[in-house]
């Protein structure tokens, strides 16, 4: 019957710990991406679409019926 050496057990623990950290990092980056897109921080900086919110009111032509 195979019995893990203490060194293997320790390395296994370390590897699983590293896996957990990497997975947490991925989840964190995904969460950041979702929140950034929702709040529009990055999108507003680099898109090429006119944004009514930043157009001065004087410059908005009145629409006649």
């Amino acid at each position: 019957m195979h019995r893990d050496h203490e060194l293997h057990t320790r390395r296994k623990g370390r590897n699983f710990g590293l896996l957990a950290v990497l997975l947490a990092f991925i989840v964190l980056i995904f969460g950041l991406t979702v929140v950034k897109i929702q709040t529009g921080g990055f999108a507003e900086a680099f898109d090429h679409v006119s944004r009514p919110a930043i157009v001065p009111q004087d410059a908005v032509p009145e629409v006649s019926e």
Binding site: H5, L7, R14
Partner: peptide, 17 residues
């Protein structure tokens, strides 16, 4: 590999998390 690793010595000093 465990057959070639002594029970004491540097192995037990290896860093853990």
């Amino acid at each position: 590999l465990s057959l070639h690793i002594p029970d004491t010595g540097p192995a037990s000093d290896e860093a853990g998390l």
